[in-house]
Design a protein around this nucleic acid. Structure first.
Lengths: 207, 207
DNA sequence: ACGGAACCGTACCGTACGGTACATAAGTTT
DNA sequence: AAACTTATGTACCGTACGGTACGGTTCCGT
């Protein structure tokens, strides 16, 4: 929806910083007011209540990421494969980002309140754009004859599983991403290679 | 390692019930004492403090699940395939269980405290047994020539990704498991089928 | 220059929760 | 039976936090 004022954006950025640094318990209205040099009254005027603030943080963070529109005309199989690898690397990068992890932890921790409103918000603003970008990419590949599948959703979820495994939950549980960030590129290439063996036209290997 | 007394088990069971019903905020020391007909002082005597109680809940829950030891001698490929499908169904069943979801939400919500002590506990008591069961199964399959892979960990993580996709995080975020529980069996079979196409006999090992 | 809106800083209130203390009862040991 | 252990229930304390109120200040439009 309509974005926030620059001042509010700065406050939200500060709130994200607090959340990343100290988790949810460090994100108090008084603490945020102190850190952002604003008054608690302004916080309640702008965001309604604490839940409104949390929701605003999610939409603000979502507004920062730009989803690269799929440029059409991707003639060669090599280009298409590279695009998938880039998607995989981007996905791993996003999921292991500090802010993403903190917001996911926040929403998961509140999944029992308000019918998981924050969770729904996170799915809508965080996961859905990624999913749609990937699905467009997959269908482009199918249109060019590089892939073959009947159910786009099934193909996408398989791709997601091959890329992420259970790394997301492990990171959410606090496991240090040792080796995860390191071998990210290699892991992305392996996942795409496996994906082609399941949904590709031929058994194209990567490099 | 030593278990708790029956009385303490009953209290922990009651605590899990509270957690499942109302999330972390519903699990207060006073509320648990009232629900379990015990005194707060006993809670602190038995579990030290609130974090000790949470940790005890995890270990207690872990003590309830029995991991079926892999019975050896699995001659036919069909038996082995069926075992993998059963594992996949079990995994999906465990991950979508109410208590499992509640405990994972709890540990994820506390991932920023004490160096993610609860998260480590959950990985050790919850995920590791499952992983070792699966890895033993995979290596058994390799020993019989049904599978071929060089890195057991890589094979296991691929299997996990093919089975679970991002369903775990989605459920943690509060997405209703509509269609998840329904098509669980079908999904398990598809995942195992895909896994065989990647790691089954005759499939080429990738780098 | 004037008036009003927005905002800051702070003080304040109510409450909820973690943790402790204590009085009492029930069972166990000697 | 007396002493001890263990547990219950209740009352209490300190604190931290969400939310509100208010006086003072800055800024903008007219």
């Amino acid at each position: 929806m309509e974005p926030f004022t620059p001042r509010q954006n700065a406050v939200l950025e500060c709130a994200l910083q607090l959340l990343v640094a100290g988790g949810e318990r460090a994100l108090t209205t008084a603490g945020l007011a102190r850190a952002a040099n604003c008054s608690k009254e302004s916080l309640y005027k702008w965001f309604g209540d604490r839940d409104g603030l949390l929701a605003a943080m999610i939409t603000y963070q979502a507004s920062k990421v730009r989803t690269p529109g799929p440029r059409e005309s991707m003639p060669t199989l090599d280009d298409f494969t590279r695009s998938l690898v880039v998607f995989a690397e981007d996905l791993l990068g996003v999921l292991s980002g500090e802010v993403s992890l903190a917001l996911n932890r926040l929403a998961i921790g509140q999944a029992d309140r308000d019918g998981a409103r924050l969770g729904a918000l996170l799915r809508e603003h965080g996961r859905l754009p990624i999913e749609q970008r990937a699905r467009a990419l997959l269908e482009l590949g199918r249109r060019h004859g590089y892939l073959q599948f009947s159910d786009t959703r099934e193909a996408y979820e398989t791709l997601y599983g091959l890329i992420v495994h259970d790394g997301h939950v492990r990171m959410l549980l606090g496991e240090p991403p040792a080796g995860l960030a390191e071998e990210r590129s290699q892991r992305a290439r392996l996942a795409i290679s496996q994906f082609f063996r399941l949904y590709g036209h031929g058994a194209q290997d990567i490099e």
